[in-house]
C-alpha cells in the first residue's frame, strides 16, 4: 500500500506530530524554546537537515547494506548539520551564539534518525522528501507555539527584531516560564490538550462508523 505524497507531508502536523505524538526531539524542544526567534531558527535548521537526510537516505536505500545502515545514516545526517552550522555561523552569528551546542547536536536528534530508519529507508524519494518537509514543519510550528507561550508569560511580551507585542508587558512576567520547569509544564499541558482533542475526534469518528 503506497500512501499519497500529500498525506506523508500533512501527517507531520497532527497525526505524527514529532513533539506531541511521537515525543521525539525533546531535548532542543525544552532547551531552546525561550523565545520565538530561537524556536523559529531551530525549526528551520531541523527542516533543512531532515529533508536533506531523508532524500539521501531514500536515494541510497537500495545500495546500503542493512548491517551498516546506521553509520551511513549518521554520515548523511552529519553533512547537512555541518552545512547548517557553518551557514548560521557566517550569516546569523548572534543566533548561533544562542543556539550554541544545540545546532551540532541535531546530528543526534531523534527526529532525524527516527525518520531515516522508520521512513526514508523504506520509502521512495518523493515520499521521503514530503515526510521530511512535513515532520520538520510540524516540529517548527511546535517550537514556535511553545516558545511563544513561554516568552509571552516569562517576559511579558513577544520580541521579534524590533517588533514587540504587546508594546509593554501588562502583567508581571513569571520568570519560571523561562526555566526548565516552566518548559516541562508548558509542554505537558499542550500535550494534554492535543490528546483530549484527538480522543474527542476519534470518539466522534467511531460514533459515526456505528
Amino acid at each position: 500500500m503506497r500512501r499519497s505524497v500529500f498525506y506523508d507531508f500533512i501527517k507531520g502536523f497532527i497525526e505524527e506530530n514529532p513533539t506531541f505524538r511521537l515525543v521525539i526531539g525533546m531535548c532542543p524542544t525544552l532547551a531552546v524554546t525561550t523565545s520565538v526567534v530561537n524556536g523559529f531558527w531551530m525549526g528551520v535548521s531541523v527542516i533543512f537537515v531532515l529533508v536533506f537526510a531523508n532524500v539521501f537516505v531514500s536515494l541510497l536505500r537500495k545500495v546500503t547494506p542493512d548491517e551498516i545502515r546506521l553509520p551511513v545514516f549518521v554520515i548523511l545526517i552529519a553533512t547537512p548539520v555541518v552545512i547548517v552550522e557553518l551557514v548560521m555561523r557566517a550569516y546569523l552569528p548572534a543566533m548561533y551564539e544562542i543556539l550554541g551546542i544545540f545546532v551540532p547536536l541535531i546530528v543526534v536528534n531523534c527526529i532525524i534518525i527516527a525518520r531515516a530508519e522508520a521512513f526514508a529507508f523504506k520509502q521512495p524519494v518523493l515520499n521521503s522528501f514530503a515526510d521530511g518537509l512535513g515532520i520538520g514543519a510540524g516540529y517548527t510550528l511546535n517550537l514556535i507555539l511553545i516558545s511563544g507561550i513561554r516568552e509571552f508569560l516569562g517576559t511579558g511580551q513577544i520580541t521579534v527584531g524590533s517588533f514587540r507585542f504587546p508594546a509593554a508587558p501588562f502583567f508581571e512576567p513569571a520568570a519560571v516560564m523561562l526555566t526548565p520547569p516552566g518548559g516541562f509544564i508548558c509542554l505537558g499541558l499542550l500535550m494534554a490538550v492535543l490528546n483530549v482533542l484527538l480522543a474527542r475526534r476519534e470518539r466522534k469518528a467511531k460514533a459515526q462508523a456505528v
Partner: peptide
C-alpha cells in the same frame, strides 16, 4: 514553589 520560581 511555583510562586517562588515565578516571582522570586
Amino acid at each position: 514553589a511555583f510562586l517562588m520560581a515565578a516571582w522570586p
